[in-house]
Amino acid sequence: MDLQVEIMEQDEETAVLAAAGEVDAYTAPKLKEALLPLTKKENFLVKVDLKDVSYMDSTGLGVFISALKSTKENNSSMKLVHLQDRVLRLFEITGLIEIMDIEWGANG
């Protein structure tokens, strides 16, 4: 299955990046290409909407880890929203949920 990545909204201070599909070794570069540049702007907030991401593997987690490191270097921030259970579980097991700004469920 493929992955679609699209910037839904963007202004001076924030952007919403929506991903849909599966994030794995083949599709993760696409996500990385869209996400990393947004984390390099100082004081910028990027929200990643994962509502339509049904599957993610460790390569996908790797993209978010490097994005998190980039936010720290560039004084920007990242928030992950609307995670499906299967994807959320990965962030829980790996302990990333403790250090990343994550909201899940329909109201997240």
């Binding site: 987690l61 880890i65 998190l68 490191k69 790996t94 302990g95 990333l96 403790e98 250090i99």
Partner: peptide, 9 residues
């Protein structure tokens, strides 16, 4: 268990 993956921070 709790505990972050190795290599993040």
């Amino acid at each position: 268990t709790k505990g972050l993956v190795l290599g993040v921070t």
